[in-house]
Amino acid sequence: MTVLEKESAIRPDALGIDGLTLGIGSGASAVPLLDGVTVRVGRGETVGLVGESGSGKSLTARAALGMFPRGARATGAVTVAGVDVLAAGRAALRDLRRTRASMIFQDPRAAINPVRRVGDYLTEGLRARGVPSREAAATALELLEQVGIRDPRGALRRHPHEFSGGMLQRVVIAGALSTEPDVLLADEPTTALDVTTQAEVIALLKEMQRTRGTGMLFVTHDLDLAAAICDRVYVMYAGRIVEEAAGTALFSAPAHPYTKALLEASPPVHGDRTEIKAIKGRPRSLAEAPSGCAFRDRCPLAGDDCAASVPATRAHGTSAVACVRPEEVAR
C-alpha cells in the first residue's frame, strides 16, 4: 500500500485554512494583517492565490508552515494533511516542515545559502530527518535528474552562484519535492525569472505536482498565469479573500469589482489592443482599509451600503464572492 493509498482512507485536504485572522500587537496599537481568510487546497489540486503587493498572499501561504511575523497572534484554523498547525508545538512544526509542506520562494538566489553546496542544500532536510547521507545523496541525484539539471552528479558539488536563475529554481523545486510533501507552497516562484524560463519552470512544477499528486498553493500577482494553470483561484484584497472562482470562470465572468478591475488593468496577450485601465487609488493593507468593504474607496460600483459592514461571502454563479452587488459586475 502506498502512502497515498493509505491516506486516501481518511484523505483530509492537503491544506485547509479556515477563517484565519492575524494581527500584531493588541489594544489601540494593534495592526490587523489578515481577516477571516479561508483557503482550501485538495490533494493534487492547484489553487491560485492572487492579489496586489501587501494583500496578504505570502502571509497566508506562510501560515501553512506555522511561520508568522514576530509577535503576531493568529486565530482560526490551519491544517496541513490533517495536522493542526496553530496548535502544533516546536517539534511538531519542525516535523511538518520537514515532511508535509514545502515552500518555493520567489528568488532562488536569495533562498539558497550561497556558501553551501547544492548537494548540501538538497540533502539537509533528509539528513535532519535521519536519512543516511549516502541515501539522501542518491535521492537528491534522482531529483536533479527529474527536474532536468544536466550533469546532476557534478551539480551536487557546485555552489549556487554557478547556476543560472532558472536552473537554480529547478534546484529549489527539487529540494521542495525531496521530502515528498502533501502540499507545495509556491510563493511567486517565477517572478524573478525571465519569461521563457518562467514557462519552463511552470511546466516542470505542474508536471511534478501531477505525477506525485501533491496539492499546490500558487501565490502570484499574475492573474492570467493563475487562471491558466490553476483549478481554482482565490483573489485577495487587503487581507481578505474577495472572490473564489474556477480558473476559467475568473476570466469569463469575474464576480468581484476588484477582480474585474485587475483583469482590465492587464494587457491582453491575444486579440485587439484595448485600453489598459488602471485602478484608481493605491493598494490598501488591512490596517488602512476603509470600514465595510475594503475596496469601496476604489470601486466604481460602491454605494452607501458598502460601508455598513464587511460583505459576507455568497455564491454567485459558480463563484463565491464577497460583494453586495456582484450582478452589476459584468465583463
Partner: peptide
C-alpha cells in the same frame, strides 16, 4: 536573509540553523 527563512521553512532550526546558515 531569506535563505535563513527558507531554511526554517524546511524544518532546520535551533543550533543547526545558527551554525550552518
Amino acid at each position: 536573509r531569506e535563505h535563513v527563512t527558507a531554511a526554517r521553512s524546511r524544518g532546520v532550526d535551533g543550533a543547526a540553523l545558527i551554525r550552518r546558515h
